[in-house]
Design a protein around this nucleic acid. Structure first.
Lengths: 266, 266
DNA sequence: CAGTGGTCTAGACCACACC
DNA sequence: GTGTGGTCTAGACCACTGT
């Protein structure tokens, strides 16, 4: 028996064009699902796919792109995890807000400032080896009095002091490089950049953000009055094996700096 | 030709026992990959799987559990994303640190305090409808002067004031419930709990954390001296469709509160 | 070289939402 | 019902790591 072709509920026209014109390189080392995800994300960010746009169902889209369904699913799931798409069983897949999310992952103040074109500069106030205090030892899971490398830096942007940062590194981290950690290197690069350059994979970090009043000396250093509000942040960073790699205790001039976080629901 | 059976590099004994004893319920609505992930995570958290333990390769483990490789992969990938496992091509899969990660997702101060057994209490200082100021309008993406519901609360724990929280809700969010947002409800539950109870899916949030000095009035309210350091936090929360659902501007007594964040590398 | 995880395919069945 | 995403399977080939 002959019937009319099924009248599919159409997805938005814009997604049709986009999918039709998408070019994938099967010989590239970049995975197909990632190529697809990048194309889609770019289209969302530059407005070719507006928020609210609905996709065809994943089987169809996969077909149109010449991909298997699992591969297409993976591309979409990647964007869902990134917060760019929303999917609901029985409903469909839609584009959400193209908001630029800056998850503040394991970045450093230096990288943050550099990325926003603030021309950061660093002055190393001290670089030494000292026995670990109780707090430092606790944070790095070392016995008290274990020698650790201590670097104190003053971070500025646009010739204004922003933060005083004290970092503590266990010597196990520095074996094999020894003097890779020089004053000049520390003034040219962020600490995290140097650590990663040493082949250490940063994996996770615990942070505490608080506030207190500046002492007279801290005020002088940061160009604030005594008693001015300071932001404080303590951070312990861990590598793949769960070993504490770095502990930092930092103060920020609250009048010139704040933390911004974007997060997805959990 | 007959050869000796291949001498496999063995994984740790503890993982063998665990996998052998794992029971899966194929008739459960809980997905298999999730059941597996939960079993493994529980074993890691309670120490049956120590940090550093190495798994057999995923094909073997899948076999031992009577699962397909993709399903097993999915369970492991879930734990990798959660930061509990680390995988490296050519190397293997290992357990990392069982650190309790508290991602501080879209939780509220109320939920944080309640979870840590602090017996929080709330006092509604005001509940009204007011025209949106410039900042509020900007944060909620509304025209200036649009009427919004404003609730100001004082949050305490252990009879000590902790925070003053001002929240602004567009009326589009409240349609259909109207008076679900009462003073008594606000004093008994967290605001986010109430919003979720209204069937609204929280999706993402942008936050800014800063610090400043307390005014005399703020000091009185929070039991601090004038000029004491305050933590400040502004947050805009969005739903699935990217619509701003809530804006909050809060101050915290820094001597009694700080933010803790755990994060994975990105 | 052997062993590992990373990617991809082609299909199947199920649970949920809306009409 | 019909259409959607969610789960699961059985296999294949590839890329990277170490010996």
């Amino acid at each position: 028996m002959v019937t009319e072709p099924v009248r599919r509920v159409p997805a938005d026209e814009s997604s049709h064009r986009l999918v039709r014109d998408m070019v994938l390189d099967r010989s590239s080392p970049v995975p197909l699902y990632f190529q697809v995800a990048q194309h889609l994300e770019a289209a969302i960010l530059d407005g070719r796919l507006q928020p609210g746009t609905r996709f065809d169902n994943e089987v169809l889209v996969a077909e149109q792109l010449g991909l298997s369904r699992p591969t297409m699913r993976r591309a979409m799931q990647y964007l869902v995890d990134k917060g760019v798409l929303v999917r609901r069983r029985g409903i469909g897949t839609r584009v959400v807000q193209p908001k630029v999310r800056r998850p503040l992952g394991l970045s450093s103040l230096y990288e943050d400032l550099a990325a926003s074109g603030q021309h950061p500069s660093t002055q190393v106030l001290s670089l030494s080896v000292e026995p670990a205090s109780a707090v430092v030892a606790q944070a790095l899971a070392l016995p008290v009095e274990t020698p650790v490398t201590v670097v104190v830096r003053l971070r500025s942007a646009a010739d204004q002091p922003i933060a005083r940062m004290a970092n503590y590194l266990p010597h196990t981290v520095l074996t094999g490089i020894g003097d890779g950690l020089t004053e000049s290197a520390l003034e040219a690069y962020g600490l995290y950049q140097l650590i990663r350059g040493l082949g250490i994979q940063l994996h996770a970090a615990d942070q505490t953000i608080g506030a207190r009043s500046a002492t007279a000396e801290e005020g002088r250093l940061l160009g604030e009055r005594r008693g001015a509000a300071l932001l404080t942040m303590q951070r312990t960073a861990y590598d793949d094996h769960g070993r504490a790699v770095e502990y930092g205790s930092h103060i920020y001039a609250a009048s010139r700096y704040s933390f911004e976080l974007s997060m997805l629901a959990g």
